[in-house]
Amino acid sequence: MITGMSYKSDETHRAQKSRRKFIYSVFTFLGLTAFISVLSTFRNRAVLRPPGALSEYEFSSRCISCGRCVDVCPTNGIKLSGLLDSGLGTPVLEGYCAVYLELIEPDPEKNLKFKFSEGKGTPCLRCIDACPTGALMKIPVKEIKIGSAIINRNTCLAWRGEPCLRCFAVCPFNAVTISEGRGPVVIRDVCTGCSQCVYVCPTTPKSIVVQPHPDYALRYRYRWRIGEGA
């Protein structure tokens, strides 16, 4: 009689235990799903992505922050953003993008020479080849849109009457022109946002900065879907 009772209470105890385990699982499932789903909404940011990044929406839906693009970048321009700053471990372009193998160390003279022999450059774009999930897609070099440069005329040496124009010389895409013979101006449609001009700008803080494209959320979304871009 007594053993029977103890057996019964043992069973209820076990049932209680397994019910408790089930509740732990349910709470973990709901909690984790909610937490990381909310967290990942912070991924969509207006930041400079490596070249070939799709629309911000598609980029963050594919990037597994594996860091292969970081490791292959010859200029060390790509960095994984920390969790606490924007981007949640996804890669951002902090330095500059060489775009062409010949321009891995940008230098106005070298770039001028390079521009004269136009069309012969070998695209670097190793980050695109390295990307395992297609968050960075192969697109023609001229289509790359990382962002576009903006010149601060108050601090720019050329606009203040001193000889400089290093950004004009270095730009591999001829996106910087001289306005009215006075100072450099960026043609926003031509600028790819490779940031080489930022690298060579002699002023501190930099008088030329690259800003993310205003419609960064739609960078390539439509184009590559209909198969033109890829």
Binding site: Y24, G31, L32, I36, L39, S61, S65, G89
Partner: peptide, 29 residues
């Protein structure tokens, strides 16, 4: 505390969160 097999719940949560947010959400953490 006997947690039991919570990792299957985390696995399901990771897959569900990836489906809901359409991003590799687990990779963040």
């Amino acid at each position: 505390i006997e947690l039991g097999e919570v990792r299957f719940a985390t696995l399901a949560g990771v897959v569900a969160a990836a489906g809901i947010s359409k991003t590799p959400a687990w990779c963040n953490v």
